[in-house]
Design a protein around this nucleic acid. Structure first.
Length: 828
RNA sequence: GCCGGGGUGGCGAAAUGGCAGACGCAGCGGGCUUAAACCCCGCAGCCGCAAGGCGUGAGGGUUCGACCCCCUCCCCCGGCACCA
C-alpha cells in the first residue's frame, strides 16, 4: 500500500485517514490470491446453500442497476456464510443476443469479439464490487462448451415431443428482423426496440410449455413475492368452460362437418344467434360461399395487414363479414350464420367463438351493428321481455333453454357442459391463455438449433456426440430477415445422421432465454464436458435457495426456468420441486431526476466514477441505505456523502478510540446498545431490510463517537463493541471490515468468522420512558422501571403537573396501560 | 376496464394498533482552522412570543388510542387487457 503525500501522515499524533480505494485494492488482491471465495461442493460440518443473482448481459459496462441488484444480494450471501452455511454464489454472462449484432453492425466489430471484450471489462468491474462470487464456476453462454449443452437441451425436448416445428403466424419485429416470443411483445411492440410488431406466416420452432400450464399455474407454495406469482398466474390464464361442436349445414369438400368453439358460458348456449371465426381459421376458405368469396377475401387481406396494435385495441369498432355459411346448434336445432371478424383470435381456444349477444358485450355490439338477432336466455331481475339495452352478464335464471329453464345459470354451466358430453357434442374443458414458446430466431448471435432436415428422413436431431453444432465465425451476419446461417453453404450443407445422404442444417438460432433457462443448473458443475451437469452436483446444490433479480422477468425468464426445471425433473436430472425456492425482486434504481436512467435522458450515474470517488464499500452501503430494496428509488448523488461520513466515523472511532478505562456503568450502557443493535441488524438482514440495518449501525457508531468525545470508555465493553461492529460491517462493507479486523489484531479473515449471537440479557434496560396520555393526547413522558405495574405508572403519571392539570375536575373512566409503552388515562 | 404496489417534513425514508418523522441529505447556528476542505457539537414537521393547536393524499367509520384495520373517492407506479 502506498502512502500519498498527505501532510498528516508525517506527524505522530495525527490519525491515519480512511482511504477506501487503497484498502479495497489491497484486500481484493489478497482475497483473490487466497481463493477465499472458492466454494467446494461439500464442506465437512456445513450445509450447502445456493444464492443466486440474475447474471448480466455483457452490454459493455456494469451500470448502477447491476450494483443495486448485486450488492445487497452479495451482502445476503456473506451473511449466510457467516451463519455457518457453505454458500455458493456464482456469476456469469448471458452472452448471446441481439445487441452484440446490432453494436457489431454499427461499430464494424464481430459480435464475438465485441462480447468477449465486454466480458473482460465487466468481469473487472464485478470484481471491483468486492463480491463473494466464486469465479471458478463462471459460465459464458456463448462459448461452445456451454451452448453445446443448450443444444443438448433442445435435443432432449425434441425427443420428449416438447419441441416441434410449425407453420404459423409469428410475431415479427421489422427492425430487429426476427421473430419474437409472445412474452417479448409488449403492447403490440417489440420489447427490445419498440418497433410495431407485424404478423408473418413462417416455419418456426416451438416448445410445448402449454403442456405444463396447469403445473406452472400452481406456484402458491413458492416463497416468492405475491405480485410476481400473480403475474405468472394471470399470464397462464386458466379458464374453465366447455368445448361445443356445431354441425356445419354443408360439410366441406374434405369431409369436415363441424365447427368447434370454446366458451366459458355454456349456460348461454341456447342464446347463440351467430358464430364468428378468426379470419385465419382453417375452415374459412372451405365454407365461404361463392357470392361472399370476394368480400371474405378482402376482409382477410385487411386483417392480415392490421398491426398487432390495431388488432389489440379494445376501442376499435368490431367489424366482420358474413361467409354465407351456416351451422346448426345441436341444442336448439337453430340455423346459425357464420361470420369472420378479427376480434376473434386464431391462437386462443379453437379460433372460433359462439356469439351470444344478449349476454356478452362484444357480441352485443357486433349484433347491433349488423342487425343480428339478440336472444335472451338469462332473465335479468324484473325483466319485462323488452329488448335489452346492453348485454346482461350477471347471474340469473335460465329461460328459453328447454329442459334447463328455471335453473340458475351457475348450475346450468356444468349441467349443459355435462349434457354436451353425454350427447357427444363437446363437453367441459379448460383453456389457457399461455401459448407455446416460439424459440427460433432469424439472427446470427445465438446457439444454432441442432436439427438437420433430410429429404428422406425429415427432421433429424444432431446426435448428441456430435454436439456442439458450432456457430461459424466467418458469416455475413447483417440482419436481413433471412437467417444469416442460411447464407453459409459450408454451414448448411451436411449429411443426414440416419441415412448419410446430403441434407441441410436448420439455420435459425435459439432465443437467448433458452440459455438462461438452465444456467443455474450449470454453475454447480460448470466445467463438466460429459454432461450438462452431474446428478451429484445437482443434488449438492439444487434447487436455488435464494434467487434475486428484477420482476420484469416474471413471465419470461422466471416462467421459462420453471418450465425447464420441470422437464429436467421428469428426465431425472435434478431433485424434486421448483428451481427457485425463494425469490426476491429488487426495485429499480432511477436517475437523480427520478426517471429511468438512460443515455438519452442524460441522467446516468456511472458506478465506476462513484466507486473511485467514495469506495466500493460506501457505494454498496449507499445503495442499500437509500430505501427498501424491493422499492428501488432515485439515486441521489448528494446523499451518498452521508454514508461516506458514517464509514469515516467508523474508521475514526475504531482506529482512534477514547481512553480505555474501567467503568461498570458505562460498560452496561455500551453493551446494551451494541447487543440491541446486533439483534436489530440480524433481524433486518434476514428480512432483507438493509436500509434499517445500516441505520442501526449508524446509531451505534454515533454513540461510540459521543464516548470518544467524552474521552473515555470501559475497555472491555469498548473492545467488544468494536468487534461486533466490525463483524456486522463485514457483509455490507467487506473491505473496511477486513481492514479494521486486521488492525484489531484478529486473525485473517473477518469473512471466515461466525456471525455473532446477541445476548438478550444484555439488552434489558433499567428504566423505560413511557408516554402518558389523557384522552389519547400525549401530555408528558415519564421514566419508570420496565417491570412497573399500572398502579406504579399511574402514581408516577399523576405526580406530573403536566398530566395533573388535565385531570383537575375530571372523572377517570378508564385507564389503559401498555407496559414499556404508554399509559392512557381516559377522563370525562 | 380488471389485478397488484404505493401516496408520511424541503428531499430519501422510519414506525404494521400504543410517544409520527429513527437514520441520512439539504438548511441554519456554533467549534476546530491563518483560511478552505475534512471533521466535531447543537437546532430543526407546520402555525404560534408562549401556552397551546394542527399534522401521515381527501372524506367518513371502528377503537381508550389509527400512517397502520374497514368503507367511499382522488393521484402516481407496475402488470394484464377483444383470451370468448
Amino acid at each position: 500500500m502506498t502512502t500519498d503525500a498527505t501532510t498528516d501522515s508525517s506527524t505522530d499524533s495525527a490519525p491515519e485517514r480512511y482511504q477506501p480505494r487503497a484498502i479495497e485494492r489491497r484486500w481484493q488482491a489478497r482475497w483473490e490470491q487466497d481463493d477465499l471465495y472458492r466454494t467446494p461442493d461439500h464442506v465437512e460440518g456445513k450445509q450447502n446453500r445456493y444464492h443466486l443473482t440474475m447474471f448480466p448481459y455483457p452490454s459493455g459496462d456494469l451500470h448502477v442497476g447491476h450494483w443495486f441488484a448485486m450488492a445487497p444480494s452479495d451482502t445476503l450471501a456473506r451473511y449466510f456464510r457467516m451463519r455457518g452455511w457453505n454458500v455458493l454464489f456464482p456469476m456469469g454472462f448471458d452472452a448471446f443476443g441481439l445487441p452484440a449484432e446490432n453494436a457489431a453492425f454499427k461499430g464494424g466489430m464481430h459480435p464475438k469479439d465485441w462480447t468477449d471484450a465486454n466480458i473482460v471489462r465487466m468481469r473487472g468491474q464485478l470484481k471491483a464490487m468486492g463480491a463473494t462470487f466464486d469465479w471458478s464456476r463462471e459460465v459464458n453462454t456463448s462459448l461452445p462448451e456451454y451452448y453445446r449443452w443448450t443444444q443438448w437441451w433442445f435435443v432432449q425436448l425434441f425427443k420428449q415431443g416438447l419441441a416441434y416445428r410449425k407453420h404459423a403466424a409469428a410475431n415479427w419485429c421489422p427492425v430487429d428482423n426476427t421473430t419474437l416470443a409472445n412474452e417479448q411483445v409488449v403492447d403490440g411492440c417489440c420489447e427490445r426496440c419498440g418497433a410495431v410488431v407485424e404478423q408473418r406466416e413462417m416455419e418456426q420452432w416451438f416448445f410445448r410449455i402449454t403442456k405444463y400450464a396447469e403445473e406452472l399455474l400452481h406456484n402458491e407454495d413458492l416463497d416468492w413475492p405475491e405480485h410476481v406469482k400473480l403475474m405468472q398466474r394471470n399470464w397462464i390464464g386458466r379458464s374453465e368452460g366447455a368445448e361445443v361442436a356445431f354441425a356445419l349445414e354443408h360439410p366441406t369438400a374434405d369431409g369436415t362437418d363441424e365447427v368447434r368453439v370454446f366458451t366459458t358460458r355454456p349456460d348461454t348456449l341456447h342464446g347463440v344467434t351467430f358464430m364468428v371465426l378468426a379470419p385465419e381459421h382453417p375452415l374459412v376458405d372451405a365454407i365461404t360461399t361463392t357470392e361472399h368469396a370476394d368480400e371474405v377475401l378482402a376482409y382477410k387481406d385487411r386483417a392480415a395487414h392490421a398491426t398487432e396494435i390495431e388488432r389489440l385495441s379494445t376501442e376499435r369498432e368490431k367489424v366482420g363479414v358474413f361467409t354465407g355459411a351456416y351451422c346448426i346448434n345441436h341444442l336448439t336445432g337453430d340455423r346459425v350464420p357464420i361470420w369472420i371478424a378479427d376480434y376473434v383470435l386464431a391462437s386462443y381456444g379453437t379460433g372460433a367463438v359462439m356469439a351470444v349477444p344478449a349476454h356478452d358485450e362484444r357480441d352485443f355490439a357486433f349484433a347491433t351493428k349488423y342487425g343480428l338477432p339478440i336472444k335472451v336466455v338469462i332473465a335479468p331481475p324484473d325483466w319485462d321481455g323488452q329488448p335489452l339495452e346492453a348485454a346482461w352478464h350477471d347471474e340469473g335464471t335460465l329461460i328459453a333453454s328447454k329442459q334447463f329453464d328455471r335453473m340458475s345459470n351457475v348450475e346450468a354451466k356444468s349441467a349443459i357442459a355435462g349434457y354436451l358430453a353425454e350427447q357427444g357434442w363437446g363437453g367441459p374443458t379448460v383453456n389457457y391463455r399461455l401459448r407455446d414458446w416460439l424459440i427460433s430466431r432469424q439472427r446470427y448471435w445465438g446457439a444454432p438449433i441442432p436439427m438437420i432436415n433430410c429429404p428422406d428422413d425429415g427432421l433429424v436431431p444432431v446426435p448428441e456426440d456430435q454436439l456442439p453444432v458450432m456457430l461459424p465465425y466467418d458469416v455475413e451476419f447483417r440482419p436481413t430477415g433471412q437467417s444469416p446461417l442460411s447464407l453459409s453453404e459450408e454451414f448448411v450443407n451436411t449429411t443426414c445422421p440416419q441415412c448419410g445422404k446430403a441434407a441441410r442444417r436448420e439455420t435459425d438460432t435459439m432465443d437467448t432465454f433458452m440459455c438462461s433457462s438452465w444456467y443455474y443448473m450449470r454453475y454447480p458443475d460448470a466445467h463438466n464436458d460429459e454432461q450438462p451437469f452431474s446428478r451429484a452436483a445437482a443434488d449438492a446444490w439444487l434447487p436455488v435457495d435464494q434467487y434475486t433479480g428484477g420482476s420484469e422477468h416474471a413471465t419470461m425468464h422466471l416462467l421459462y426456468a420453471r418450465f425447464f426445471y420441470t422437464v429436467a425433473r421428469d428426465l431425472g436430472l435434478v431433485p424434486e420441486g421448483e428451481p427457485f425456492t425463494r425469490y426476491f425482486s429488487q426495485g429499480q434504481i432511477l436517475g437523480p431526476d427520478g426517471r429511468r436512467m438512460s443515455k438519452s435522458r442524460g441522467n446516468v450515474v456511472a458506478p465506476d466514477d462513484q466507486v473511485e470517488k467514495w469506495g466500493a464499500d460506501c457505494f454498496r452501503a449507499y445503495l442499500m441505505f437509500l430505501g427498501p430494496w424491493d422499492q428501488g428509488g432515485p439515486y441521489d448523488v448528494d446523499s451518498i456523502v452521508g454514508v461516506s461520513r458514517w464509514l469515516n466515523r467508523v474508521w475514526t472511532v475504531v482506529t482512534n478510540p477514547p481512553a480505555l478505562v474501567e467503568d461498570a456503568a458505562g460498560a452496561r450502557d455500551l453493551r446494551r446498545l451494541a447487543h440491541t443493535t446486533l439483534a436489530k441488524v440480524t433481524e433486518d438482514i434476514e428480512e432483507k431490510r438493509f436500509n434499517t440495518a445500516i441505520a442501526a449501525m449508524m446509531e451505534l457508531t454515533n454513540a461510540m463517537q459521543r464516548l470518544r468525545d467524552e474521552g473515555h470508555a470501559d475497555a472491555a465493553a469498548w473492545t467488544e463493541t468494536v468487534d461486533l461492529l466490525t463483524l456486522m460491517l463485514a457483509p455490507p462493507c467487506p473491505h473496511v471490515a477486513e481492514e479494521l479486523w486486521e488492525r484489531a489484531g484478529h486473525a485473517y479473515s473477518v469473512h471466515q468468522q461466525s456471525w455473532p449471537e446477541y445476548d438478550p440479557a444484555l439488552t434489558v434496560r433499567d428504566t423505560v420512558d413511557i408516554a402518558v396520555q389523557v384522552n389519547g393526547k400525549v401530555r408528558d413522558r415519564i421514566s419508570i422501571a420496565p417491570s412497573a405495574d399500572e398502579a406504579t405508572a399511574r402514581a408516577a403519571a399523576e405526580a406530573s403537573p403536566r398530566v395533573a392539570d388535565h385531570l383537575v375536575g375530571k372523572q377517570v373512566v378508564r385507564v389503559v396501560f401498555v407496559p414499556e409503552r404508554l399509559l392512557n388515562i381516559v377522563v370525562r
